[in-house]
Nucleic acid binder design. Sequence first.
DNA 1: ATGACACTATTTTAGTGA
Length: 260
Amino acid sequence: MRIATWNVNSLRARLDFVLMWLEARQPDVVGLQELKATDEEFPRTAFQDLGYEVALHGQKGWNGVAILSRLPVEQVRRGLPGQESFGARLIGARIAGLAFFTAYCPNGKELTHPDFERKLGWFDDLAAFWRDADAGEAAVLCGDFNIVPAPVDSWRGAAADGRLFHTPDERRRFQALLELGLVDLYRDRRGDEQAFSWWDYRGGAFHRGQGLRIDMLLGTPRVAERVTDVRIDRDFRKKRSGLTASDHAPVYADLDLDDG
DNA sequence: ATGACACTATTTTAGTGA
């Protein structure tokens, strides 16, 4: 089973690009973030034509998350309890025995902005939700976490410590998810290898290698031990066929879950 | 040092993103 996460930065603006990627990589289950579309605006049929079921939690203008799946989708859950006012940022479902959740975690805006404290509170609620979710042995929590877990995950290295995304307060929240038993599948598989999943559109950041790793696939040990490959698909951060890429690359993993 | 890019919305400028 190939699972993936991707912040598409507007599904309506990115539809043809996303379809190209699906054709190229053939993922089975995909978590999408930053749809910037209502459920009514979401082009369901374009995905159904490629064999994907769609589960949606959209809203007008901003945020929005979705799951695409070539396998039957059951028990869809929308929203993070208690955090509905912070936008449509979490969706989960049960797919072929796997509990699959994808999240668009808050940005925080600036350290002095009220949204920074709200971001920390959102992560506290996410951890509480996950602790109580009873997701089962095989579970995935993926998405755009908007936290750089460690200096190696920033192009600036430790020089970025303390900036937004790189604060001890944020890193503690990410660590709290790992302490609930989740494994960072990229880091687990790749050791200390440096790779980024997001690059600023401005200033040639992508070509200068100035990125961050903020898009993650987290999995329970049951999932982590079945991983055969993890890739950050930076080729799809590049413009292609005249179409503009998202500022995030897709991240995908292959799981050998055949025996359940 | 600034802004640089690409998206959104009671759109023609301002806000958001990371």
